[in-house]
Amino acid sequence: MRIPEGCFEKATVFMKSKARGLERSRFEYLFENASKESVIAQLKAYQNEDGGFGHGIEPDFWLPLSSPMATWAAGQILLEIDADANEPMVKSMVSYLVTTLNIETGMWASVLPENNDYPHAPWWHWQEGVQVNWMFNPSVELAAFLVHWSPEKSKGAEKGWTSIGKAIHRLMNQTDMDRHEINNYQQFLKIIKPYESTFSTKFKYTLDTVSEKIVALAERSIDKIISTWKNGYKALPLDFIDIPEHPLCDRLGLLVEQNLNLYVEEMSDEGIWDISWRWGSYPDEFEVARKNWQGILAINRYKQLRAFGYLE
């Protein structure tokens, strides 16, 4: 199956005329062979002097100050464009992560008190003890960033591995997990794969064992009742699957195809998708965030549709 004729072209018009500059540059990099330098140039607007990122790069909270969560959002984009460890933006980001890790817990603060001072979705509201709701989202991925972009025996790599050790302990002792934290572990696995031999010497688990655990948690969290998929914010197969070779494809069978077809069905006349959540507050700012998310969703879903042959 393919997407209807003209949909991608309409999406291209949307991305170039209505999406943020950051998403426009990503779209052009991914689908039009544009340079990664244009993405880095757009990212600069979101990076602060301390190396961390803010300024609403994650559209659901508008904190201008640096936060680990906003830095995670930027780090994912830097990975997407295969940014080098010597890239000044990356070096500065690594420095920020090294100085903000809570070495005792192995976690970075997922939500900061300062979030409350700026427009934000309710789930980004800080209160005492909120970290227990987030745990290693996004810390396990941030730790992998440190290992990936730090010299082998540096303080950055050392702190990254320390955090990873605590994250793996949590993972292997869980029977269920929030979908977003599972996503973080999935991305961690991709980033850390080239360092498999080091991982094996540091921990009692193999990466294969860790992968099996992550896949099992993902499968358990997925809503498998197709008739309910449009009802609210649910974990669907494609929230965890990005390529046909993913191990969950065999386990879920036709559910993956049904999810792809749902994406096609839910396209708007502009060839994009709307979000399935609302803030319930800050109505004007929410509409801005909603539009920004539409650009992000378009990139993510067209990447998946292309991987599965729906977009040639």
Rank of each mutant, 00 (worst) to 15 (best):
Y282N: 08
M267K: 08
R306L: 11
V210I: 15
V94Q: 11
G309E: 12
S38V: 13
Q258K: 12
V13I: 13
P138Q: 03
H125K: 14
S139K: 04
A41S: 15
G129E: 10
Q131K: 03
K91D: 12
S110F: 14
I77F: 11
S197C: 06
S139N: 05
Y282S: 01
E28M: 09
I222D: 06
Y310S: 05
K204A: 07
K213M: 14
A85M: 15
I40A: 04
E9L: 09
G21E: 14
N48L: 15
P237T: 00
G165V: 01
K204R: 12
T198V: 06
A11L: 05
S35D: 13
V130G: 03
N137V: 11
E270Y: 08
L262Q: 14
N115Y: 07
E196N: 10
L236P: 01
A34D: 10
S227H: 08
T105H: 02
Y310M: 07
I182S: 02
N184T: 10
F145W: 04
V98M: 12
S92W: 02
G280I: 04
H55E: 12
D60L: 05
S200N: 13
N231W: 05
E37M: 09
H169K: 13
E312S: 13
S268V: 05
H125V: 03
G21C: 06
F145C: 01
N184Q: 13
V39E: 00
L30N: 09
W273N: 10
K224C: 10
F145T: 03
K155I: 15
G75P: 05
H180V: 02
I164F: 04
V147L: 06
R20V: 08
T228E: 00
S38K: 13
V98H: 06
S92V: 02
A109F: 14
M1N: 08
S150R: 04
L262N: 15
L22M: 05
P151S: 06
S163C: 09
G271A: 09
A70F: 00
G6Y: 03
N86Q: 14
I57Q: 03
D50G: 00
W124V: 07
L146G: 02
M177C: 11
Y310N: 04
G271N: 08
A34R: 12
L254A: 13
E181K: 03
I103G: 07
G56F: 05
A144D: 00
R306N: 11
R306A: 12
L238W: 03
Y118S: 02
I57C: 00
V13E: 15
I81K: 10
K230Q: 12
G75R: 06
Y29E: 15
K16M: 07
M89K: 02
Q304S: 12
L248R: 00
T198L: 03
P4G: 01
N300H: 13
T206P: 10
I299H: 09
Q127P: 01
K44Q: 15
G75H: 04
L189A: 06
G165M: 01
F203Y: 15
E270P: 11
F14P: 10
S197H: 12
L311W: 14
N116Q: 04
F188P: 02
E257C: 09
Q127G: 02
Q187R: 13
L262W: 07
E141S: 11
A73L: 07
P64K: 01
I81R: 09
I243K: 14
L101G: 09
G52T: 01
D284E: 14
F61S: 00
Y46H: 06
I222T: 10
I57T: 03
T162S: 11
D117E: 12
W62S: 09
N184P: 01
A19S: 10
R179M: 13
A157K: 09
K159D: 00
